[in-house]
Design a protein around this nucleic acid. Structure first.
Length: 621
DNA sequence: AGAGGTCGCGCC
DNA sequence: AGGGCGCGACCTCT
């Protein structure tokens, strides 16, 4: 397989550096020892066409940051099959315990540790004048990229001739800022970037070296490939958008809230409920949107509540309860997914959230707008397939306990994880007395329940599934000691912050009193719950990434261009021509089986799916 | 006026 | 309950 490094130039345009294929022992990694076999400069206007032509060979494209570089290609109609996202992969390798001795992991923080990939910059020119922005960078950062590359890759590149540098030295022909976003130097202070191909090639070299020297190269390679494919999918989903029926959404809002009010005004239904609340609480001037005011009025009316939390109010007997709960529900709908949301996030019948790949420490995705990961069930009927199309919605049922069974190689739990309903199987095995207990118990084991029904079930679960429970317990103990834990493929947890260590220090110091000790213990347990969950949630996220990547590849070969339009932790949605839906269902199932094999080999765990073919999202269960 | 913190609730 | 999030609204502080 060939690898092509895309070096974007500051003024527009790019240089494509082709790398020699490595031997099979390197897991498909390219041979970096003699530099690129060819470097070709491409004007920005030609980039999409050139990339599209090269894509026929299905190379692995090496990009500094997919989220920046891929959308323009998509807009030009170009799709990439596979890639390596240097920024995302750097973040993983930087903290992975699997390669903690690597040059990449031990270097001082550099440009690749910033929130965005370092940009090639006119500032890198040798004759440039110093600017005030230089002062904003840490003094050591100018050496950071070089030290990250270390002697290994950096010197190889430049020892074998300055071919790449020569290309870069010629002026780009694409024209300044044409069709591209010109970085605003005032928007964000940047470290002085070295610019040129050395950054990309040296960084790639450092990454491949870290992987090759790691404890589990195969797993890390899979993780980096899955993460990078995730970046492609995220951009593609933002490009294609989720089919959204704005008229249906508006109809729904009008039905529940009344007609759309003037900006700032309460919809009619909320106004009615507010009046009811005021009467029931005998508080004529009450604004139910104010939590303190509402709490005060509730208590004055005799309700035994300490907050305005839904669950607390619901437990009370009072005429105000019903309207207050109704008000909260509807005002939430209005503020989170009302007309303002519709105006902001839905265009031309598509909802396009900004997915943030790797945005969560565990490896889950986040979103930076639109709240796509929390689409309430209430409005899912607005997610509607185009005429002639349908939605294939699939979610992995009980993913986290299944992942735990597989990663711990717990035979008894794997037995339970072989069928469609893991919780029922636990109950049938006699470990616990009901399916409900099984569910609470397992979730408690994964989340770290310390009290209540769930905690009480732990001894029985531990006896029946010693390896599975042992794995999460070990992760919890490690976290309590402040140690790092890792997912199956090698994403590692962050370390606790300074205040955590300070609390621990204070508790063991001379003047420590009981409060210091209790505080340190509490913080230790909190962090242990985090690391306990990290290993399972993070590995589940890896399974899901592999599932989606495998699905994406299968979709590519189906007719009519069925495409992913949504991904939510353990759930995917494919917008598919009606006639292809059955093939998509098959692809979704095959991809799940493939993801299981990719991560866990032939571990006897089934990753069961619930799959629905529906016209609108609310009809999928 | 704007920043930052907290609450409450939506999703997994 | 217990883990991970994003977000809007309100409130407080500066």
């Amino acid at each position: 397989m060939s690898w092509i490094v895309v070096e974007h130039l500051a003024g527009g345009g790019a240089v494509l550096h082709e790398l020699a294929p490595g031997d099979a022992a390197a897991g498909g990694a390219p041979d970096l020892s003699r530099g690129p076999t060819a470097s070709v400069q491409v004007a920005s206007d030609d980039l999409a066409a050139v990339v599209a032509a090269r894509e026929a060979d299905r190379p692995r494209w090496v990009l500094d940051e997919v989220a920046l570089r891929y959308p323009p290609l998509l807009a030009a109609g170009v799709r990439l099959d596979r890639c390596h996202d240097l920024r995302l992969c750097h973040a993983i390798l930087r903290t992975s315990a699997s390669c903690s001795d690597s040059a990449l992991a031990t270097a001082v923080p550099g440009p690749w540790d910033a929130r965005h990939a370092p940009e090639p910059d006119a500032a890198a020119e040798s004759d440039r004048q110093p600017t005030l922005f230089d002062d904003l960078a840490p003094p050591e950062s100018s050496d950071a990229a070089a030290s990250l590359g270390s002697a290994s890759s950096w010197n190889f590149w430049h020892g074998s001739g300055a071919r790449a540098s020569t290309v870069v030295a010629s002026s780009p022909s694409g024209g300044e800022g044409e069709g591209g976003v010109v970085p605003d130097p005032l928007a964000e202070p940047r470290t002085p970037a070295e610019g040129g191909p050395a950054d990309l090639l040296a960084e790639l070299g450092a990454q491949l070296e870290a992987v090759a020297g790691s404890e589990q190269p195969g797993r890390l390679r899979l993780l980096l490939a899955a993460e990078s494919t995730g970046a492609l999918v995220a951009a593609e989903m933002a490009h294609d958008g989720m089919p959204w029926d704005a008229a249906e959404h508006d109809r729904l809002l009008t039905e529940l809230l009344g007609p759309r009010p003037a900006p700032g005004a309460r919809p009619a239904r909320l106004e009615e409920l507010a009046a009811q609340i005021r009467r029931a609480l005998d508080a004529p001037a009450l604004n139910p949107d104010s939590q303190p005011d509402l709490l005060h009025a509730l208590r004055r009316a005799g309700l035994d509540v300490t907050s305005t939390r839904r669950s607390e109010i619901a437990a009370q007997q009072h005429p105000a309860v019903e309207p207050v709960l109704a008000y909260k529900k509807l005002s939430r709908l209005l503020s989170a997914n009302g007309w303002a949301w519709l105006d902001t996030w839905v265009r031309d019948g598509r909802f396009r959230p900004d997915y943030v790949v790797g945005g969560v420490v565990t490896g889950r995705w986040a979103t930076s707008g639109g709240g796509a990961l929390q689409l309430p069930a209430q409005i899912r009927s607005a997610v509607r397939a185009e005429p002639g199309w349908t939605l294939v919605v699939a979610d992995a049922s009980q993913l986290e306990p299944r992942v735990l069974a597989a990663m711990s190689a717990d035979g008894a739990m794997a037995d339970a994880a072989r069928g469609a309903d893991l919780y029922q199987a636990l109950a049938d095995a006699g470990t616990v007395s009901s399916r409900k207990e099984a569910k609470y118990g397992m979730l408690g084991a994964i989340y770290g329940a310390t009290t209540g029904v769930s905690a009480a079930l732990m001894p029985r679960l531990t006896a029946a599934y010693p390896r599975a429970i042992g794995l999460v317990e070990a992760a919890a103990r490690a976290g309590e000691r402040g140690e790092v834990v890792s997912t199956w493929l090698g994403r590692s947890s962050p370390r606790p912050g300074p205040s955590w260590w300070a609390a621990r220090e204070a508790a063991s110091g001379e003047g420590a009193d009981a409060r210091d000790v209790a505080e340190a213990r509490r913080r230790a347990r909190d962090w242990g719950r985090f690391t306990r969950n990290f290993v399972v949630q993070g590995t589940a996220a890896e399974w899901a990434l592999c599932w989606m990547a495998a699905l994406r590849r299968r979709l590519r070969d189906l007719p009519g261009r069925p495409h992913l339009v949504f991904f939510l932790h353990d759930e995917v949605m494919v917008h598919s021509p009606v006639g292809v839906a059955e093939q998509v269902v098959e692809a979704v199932r095959d991809a799940a089986a493939e993801a299981g094999r990719l991560l866990f080999g032939d571990a006897p765990v089934e990753f069961a799916l619930d799959v629905a073919v529906v016209d609108s999202y609310d009809r999928a269960t």
